[in-house]
């Protein structure tokens, strides 16, 4: 497999259709994406998948053209096989299968969560960081042990990004919600108590969201935004701190779409300082869902023979992070 130089990756778990090309050195050569934005409410899986189908071809072409390549130079095609929304995953998988057959190169199924972790790890050059992975769909504190990324803590219900996005919509702040809540919070002064729910290593955001929306009628939006972020991020910081103390990992990697939040970065950096751990955050270009991270995780998997026949390349909408063998790490 030493002949593998360039891998193309397709991402389509939720609202982003992404296509990226990476080299075997972990350099991102292109990372194109198109993003489905619902007219109202959250993601509608079927509409999102139709959006992806309509934009797949242009996104893939753009990715190859930015990388200054044509399909014949690609050595393998990776796709996000899960976890995610079924209709969206199927659209990306179909595109990836087709590319793999056209180019006559291996097809590699990639776990979306693993991709978020590995793209952060290659850039920060940390061998064994504690992982905090936060996005619209996931909230996970994880560390590598015994051949897999084990889950130390996670959300018991909705994800952090989901909680904040829904609150933003309820306040009519639009999409993307997190930066808007953060700028309101910067003006907030009074802390309004909200449900702070930490259970062991886990967090729960659904009660917090309900209460925050309920209080939005009577409270100052700046104060409420401040309080929501302090409680939501504070809960995550607490379980992160506990995981750091428990695992004694030398460093922490913050990854996923919500990793772009500077307020969250500051908070976790402060946690790291107290425990003498090095703090790293994934680069903003590869923080949210993207194809390049799939390509890179696909490359790592390919080195360990994780290619799959097209006939067997099923999607796995419920593919948990801790079910995945990680043979490229020891």
């Amino acid at each position: 497999m030493s002949s593998v130089r360039y891998v193309l990756g397709i991402e389509s778990t939720a609202h982003t259709f992404g296509c990226g090309v990476v080299s075997s050195e972990g350099v991102v050569l292109s990372n194109s994406k198109s993003e489905y934005v619902p007219k109202a409410g959250g993601i509608h899986p079927r509409e999102a998948s139709q959006f992806h189908a309509a934009n797949a071809s242009a996104t893939i072409r753009d990715s190859l053209s930015v990388a200054k390549m044509d399909l014949s130079q690609i050595d393998a095609v990776a796709f996000s096989a899960g976890p995610g929304l079924g209709p969206c995953l199927r659209t990306g998988a179909t595109a990836a299968r087709m590319l793999s057959l056209m180019a006559g190169v291996p097809l590699i199924p990639v776990n979306h969560c693993i991709a978020h972790i590995e793209i952060g790890r290659v850039a920060c050059k940390e061998d064994d960081p504690l992982i905090v992975y936060v996005s619209g769909g996931n909230t996970i504190v994880s560390a590598f042990s015994d051949g897999r990324y084990r889950i130390f803590g996670e959300t018991l219900d909705i994800a952090l990004g989901n909680c904040l996005d829904t609150f933003a919509r309820a306040l009519g702040l639009g999409h993307p919600g997190v930066p808007k809540i953060e700028s309101l919070a910067d003006e907030g002064k009074v802390f309004i108590p909200l449900p702070y729910v930490v259970k062991g290593q886990d967090v729960s955001y659904s009660g917090l969201l309900t209460m925050a929306i309920r209080k939005s009628k009577e409270s100052d939006p700046n104060d409420l935004s401040l309080s929501l972020l302090e409680v939501a991020y504070g809960m995550l910081a607490e379980v992160t701190e506990r995981a750091l103390a428990h695992t004694e990992k030398p460093s922490l990697l913050l990854t996923g779409g919500v990793a772009r939040s500077q307020r969250l970065q500051r908070m976790l950096e402060s946690v790291c300082r107290e425990h003498a751990a090095r703090f790293h955050v994934v680069a903003p270009e590869v923080a949210g869902d993207n194809g390049a991270m799939i390509a890179w995780a696909g490359y790592l998997g390919l080195l360990k023979g994780q290619e799959i026949q097209v006939e067997k390349s099923f999607i796995k909408p419920k593919w948990r992070l801790d079910q995945v063998e990680v043979p490229w790490r020891t």
């Binding site: 108590p193 302090e230 504070g234 910081a237 500051r266 908070m267 976790l268 107290e274």
Partner: peptide, 9 residues
């Protein structure tokens, strides 16, 4: 006291 947390919280 946790420096990362809001003082009231």
């Amino acid at each position: 006291r946790k420096a990362y947390r809001n003082a009231d919280l």
